[in-house]
Computed example of a mutant assay.
Amino acid sequence: MRIGIIGLGTIATAVVKGIAEDGHDIAVSRRSEKNAGHLAGRFGNVTVADNQEIVDRSEIVFLGLTEDVAPNVLAALRFREGQQVISLMAGLDLARVADMTAPATMAARMIPFPSIATGRSQILAHGDSSLIHALFGARNSIFEIATEEELGTYLCAQAVLSPAIRMVKDAADWLAHKGADPEMAETFLRELVGSSLLAAPCDPLLDALDTPGGYNQRLRQHMTGSGMSDRLRDGFDQLLA
């Protein structure tokens, strides 16, 4: 397929890496010279082009622009019938992006995560996700979202990722402060949390870690007693407001 990427931040760069070895002809924009140069240097089928050239040559156009610059950038471009557009932009709904890219077909919104670069990402998909499945489904987990409102709640809930990583990092730093090797401490905790969450749903996992008087139960009770769960729900509500 002839694929174009307009906007080349962290997520769009990861998207390119995730499909670059699948034989597609990929053109990326100059938004980030560093990212564009890295991709073109690493993959022989990736070229750097101006935005209109990307639109002219591509069957599928991914939009990785930020919400504040997207209207002006897209207003200057001439899309055509028969093209399909997939938006990576979390802050702009399907209808608005469709207006800005007409007469192309606004296929879907796609919210991946950095791990899409290596093929182990969760992907939120809203709209006609057939292209997303075709391009990314073999190596990633795609979650179909029915409405814009539901997508909004998922975008809020996924923000738990950064605090969760921060907690693992803080625990590793505590271990290192107590004399553990810093690299081994972080690797141990990352693997422990990651493998545990993949092994079982949350409720049975919590039950298994609820030994009376055990380390896990005592720390969880300390943190929930300090208001952790309430603060988390308040944070989600603030993001959704």
Rank of each mutant, 00 (worst) to 15 (best):
G152S: 08
L88M: 08
F236V: 15
Q83M: 01
A90C: 10
L239V: 05
R233V: 14
G119L: 05
E149D: 13
A172K: 01
P201S: 10
I132H: 04
L151F: 10
D25K: 13
P71I: 02
L219I: 15
K17R: 15
C156G: 15
H222V: 11
G152K: 04
G194E: 00
G127D: 06
E53V: 11
G227P: 04
S87K: 03
D170V: 14
T187Y: 00
R57W: 04
E33F: 01
T10H: 08
E183T: 11
L88E: 04
A146M: 08
A107M: 05
L206R: 09
S226G: 12
R231I: 05
G4N: 02
L74Y: 03
P103V: 10
D128Q: 10
P71S: 12
W174K: 14
R109N: 06
R139I: 09
V73T: 07
P204D: 03
G37L: 13
K178Q: 15
S121Y: 00
N45L: 10
A117V: 08
A102V: 11
M1A: 07
G227I: 13
L198C: 14
E81R: 14
G91F: 05
C202I: 15
V97H: 00
V168Y: 07
S29V: 12
R120T: 11
S29M: 09
R231F: 03
A107G: 09
P163S: 08
R233A: 12
L74A: 08
I6Y: 02
M110Y: 00
L161S: 08
S196L: 07
G127V: 07
F236W: 01
V69Q: 05
G23Q: 06
I165E: 11
T47F: 06
A90Q: 09
A134M: 12
Q122A: 15
P71W: 06
S196K: 06
G18H: 05
A159D: 04
N51G: 10
I19F: 04
D22Q: 12
V16I: 14
R233I: 14
P182S: 05
K17A: 12
D99A: 11
